[in-house]
Design a protein around this nucleic acid. Sequence first.
DNA 1: GCCATGGCTAGTA
DNA 2: GCCATGGCTAGTA
Length: 107
Amino acid sequence: MSRQPFTARVIELIRTIPKGKVATYGGIAAMAGNPRAARQVARVLYSCSEVERLPWHRVVNREGRIVLKTEWNQMEQEERLEREGIVFSGSGRIDLERFLWQPGNTV
DNA sequence: GCCATGGCTAGTA
DNA sequence: GCCATGGCTAGTA
């Protein structure tokens, strides 16, 4: 199953998110070459996570929130992130200043 | 036509 | 809460 370049880059990028960090849908899309294709990232996660064994839980929305449909899935994502040391505020948000993956920085 | 987005506005308190 | 966005798939001809 060969993939389109954009999708292949998205998959590769998601794989690269380090443990203990998160990325945003829009951020991954931008790194893959199209800042407006945030929903494609969602689509890739939805359709490829299992087969590609992606660290799907490390992708959240621009507000640092989990946006999965079902409560069951939301809880699983939250648990996986907390197990990696990511902290949620009382209102269920992740501090992106602290936990956002920024491939460029040397810190 | 689907999708796990994002950005901007309207409308309430 | 609305709706533009865009890569991809399913399903028809």
